[in-house]
Simulated assay, not measured.
Amino acid sequence: MISALWEIGAVLDEDRTPANVPNAVWLTIPTTRLRGPNARQDNVWLRECLERMTGLKLSGQHRGDEWGAVLVAEWHITEGGSKARILIPPAGVHALRSPGNFVKIETTAAHRLPPHA
């Protein structure tokens, strides 16, 4: 899951997506890139990772106001399993593009892994 998070962050970086966007961002990423070089060739684990990222909640305060969001708003595996389309809401983009927030997300993601992982 952490490698998929890294890849999503890398695509945002490659696309030069600013940390503060007014609208959600759709990313289209090859599933082989999200799965990693030595991962299963099917998308079983990738689907599980995307499902968990959809449940990853972000929250905080900004100028005294509380806010909350999810990291991934929506995802689709398309083109016979070769591509993943992932919708990242503005707060998710900000979190993935901000180094301090990204570390917190990685830590949370790592704690969500099963013990044998």
Score class of each variant (00 low, 15 high):
Pro114Ala: 06
Ser59Gly: 04
His94Arg: 14
Leu87His: 08
Glu79Met: 05
Ile77Val: 15
Arg52Met: 09
Gly80Tyr: 05
Pro99Ala: 13
Ile77Asp: 02
His111Tyr: 11
Leu58Arg: 02
Pro89His: 12
Gly68Cys: 00
Arg52Gly: 04
Ala109Leu: 01
Gly80Trp: 02
Leu46Asn: 12
Ser59Ile: 00
Trp45Ser: 07
Pro89Thr: 09
Asp65Leu: 15
Ala95Thr: 13
Val72His: 00
Arg85Pro: 10
His76Met: 01
Asp42Met: 10
Thr107Leu: 11
Leu113Cys: 02
Leu56Ser: 04
Ala95Glu: 08
Pro99Phe: 08
Ala109Tyr: 03
Pro99Thr: 09
Asp42Trp: 01
Leu71Pro: 08
Leu56Val: 07
Leu113Tyr: 03
Arg112His: 03
Ala84Asp: 13
Arg47Asp: 08
Ser98Gly: 00
Arg112Glu: 15
Arg63Pro: 02
Phe102Ile: 00
Ala69Gln: 05
Ala95Val: 04
Phe102Asn: 07
Glu48Lys: 14
Lys83Arg: 10
Ser82Lys: 11
Ala95Ile: 00
Ala69His: 13
Thr54Ala: 07
Arg85Met: 06
Ile88Met: 09
Gly100Glu: 12
Arg85Glu: 15
Leu56Thr: 11
His76Glu: 15
Gly60Asn: 10
Leu96Cys: 03
Asp42Ile: 13
Val70Gly: 15
Gly55Glu: 12
Arg47Asn: 10
Glu48Asn: 14
Met53Trp: 13
Leu96Arg: 07
Thr54Gly: 02
Leu50Glu: 05
Asn101Val: 02
Trp45Ala: 14
Gln41His: 14
Gly80Gln: 04
Leu56Gln: 13
Leu58Pro: 09
Pro89Gln: 06
Ala84Arg: 04
Val44Ser: 15
Pro114Trp: 08
Ala73Met: 06
Leu87Ser: 08
Val44Phe: 11
Arg52His: 03
Asp42Glu: 14
Ser98Leu: 02
Ser82His: 14
Val70Tyr: 06
Val72Gly: 06
Arg97Leu: 11
Asp65Glu: 15
Ile77Tyr: 11
Lys83Trp: 15
